[in-house]
Amino acid sequence: MQRLGLVTVVVRDYDEAIAFYVHVLGFRLVEDTDLGDGKRWVVVAPRGARETAVLLARAASGGQEARVGDQTGGRVGWFLHTDAFDHDHRRLRAAGVVFEEAPRHEPYGTVAVFRDLYGNRWDLIEPHRPSAPGGTGSGM
């Protein structure tokens, strides 16, 4: 069996990234370990996440610094699933998260693109749930 454990977001500063992901997005701080020489192993995860978490990695070179905020060439790089889109959308907006668009309804669910503190693009998405047996829902 395989599973995706961590995905990396390159950040400018550990503490400002922790503040955004924990206090604004509402993630939990899973680990913050000092590795020496100014390096830390910082892992955050959405509350309720069971497998995949985010490794916040401080840029360590000019090339990495240049990628902060543009790790995916302007495409949405991360998909934050929710089962309470309206609630989370309101909460994030109230916390200052910048959404690029109004929520939209797609065949796969309700979605809106937002930017993290560095400008990386994320989807906040509530996927459609499969219908009960015999139902007509589209599922995913």
Rank of each mutant, 00 (worst) to 15 (best):
G73C: 09
R75E: 11
A60M: 11
T52G: 02
G77W: 09
A60D: 13
G48P: 12
A60Q: 14
G74R: 05
T52I: 15
L92T: 05
D83C: 04
A66N: 04
F79Q: 09
R58H: 05
G77D: 05
R50T: 15
V54K: 10
A59N: 06
R67K: 12
V54T: 12
V68A: 03
D88E: 13
S61E: 03
R67F: 02
L55E: 06
E51T: 15
A60I: 11
Q71C: 00
G62E: 13
E51K: 05
F79V: 11
T72V: 09
T52C: 13
H87T: 14
A53I: 01
T52S: 05
W78E: 00
G74A: 11
R90Y: 01
R75A: 15
H81C: 12
R90G: 11
L56H: 07
S61C: 07
A57S: 10
G62R: 08
G69E: 02
L55A: 13
H89T: 02
R91F: 02
D83F: 04
T82W: 07
A59M: 08
R93F: 00
S61A: 07
V68R: 01
V54G: 10
H81R: 12
L92M: 11
H89N: 02
D83L: 08
D83M: 07
R50Y: 11
F85A: 01
A57E: 07
A53S: 12
A57N: 09
S61Y: 10
A53F: 03
A66E: 11
H89C: 06
T82V: 11
A84V: 13
R67H: 04
L56S: 07
V68Y: 02
G48N: 06
G48H: 01
F85T: 00
R93Q: 07
L80Q: 03
G63H: 02
A84E: 13
D88F: 04
R91G: 03
A59L: 09
A49S: 15
H81E: 14
G73L: 04
Q71H: 08
H81L: 15
H81M: 12
E65T: 09
H81Q: 13
G77E: 06
A59T: 07
G77C: 08
A60C: 05
L80H: 08
A60H: 10
G62N: 08
A49G: 08
H81A: 15
A57P: 00
H89S: 01
G62T: 14
E65H: 10
R58A: 14
G48S: 10
R75F: 10
F85W: 11
G48F: 03
A53V: 01
R91Y: 00
H87D: 14
D86M: 08
A53W: 00
A57C: 01
G62K: 06
G48C: 10
L55T: 04
